[in-house]
Amino acid sequence: MYQADVIVTLKPVVNDPQGSTIKSALHALGFTAVEDVRAGKLLRLTLDTDDRAEAAAMTESMARQLLANSVIEDFKISLVALEAPARSRRA
């Protein structure tokens, strides 16, 4: 099993009003060192495969087709091998 984390963010050239609003709120709280905030989303997928290359390829394909909109968004993928549940290891 693999866990694939897909982080989707707006492209740097696309304005992020949500990020700007969060930045203003942080400044209001006194965190004046905050130069920039970009909001995004995390999609955590659990994949039924033990093949890292296959996990990477299928996640990439899912991100391109559905998870991110290439017109406005970029994505990053990170993969972590999961311990298989005890039951399936014994089987």
Binding site: L10, N15, P17, Q18, T21, N69, V71, I72
Partner: peptide, 17 residues
């Protein structure tokens, strides 16, 4: 229509949020 690529561009969150 934009997601389906029948029209170009995208619609972002309103600037005012």
């Amino acid at each position: 229509l934009q997601e389906a690529r029948l029209l170009p561009g995208a619609l972002l969150r309103n600037a005012s949020c």
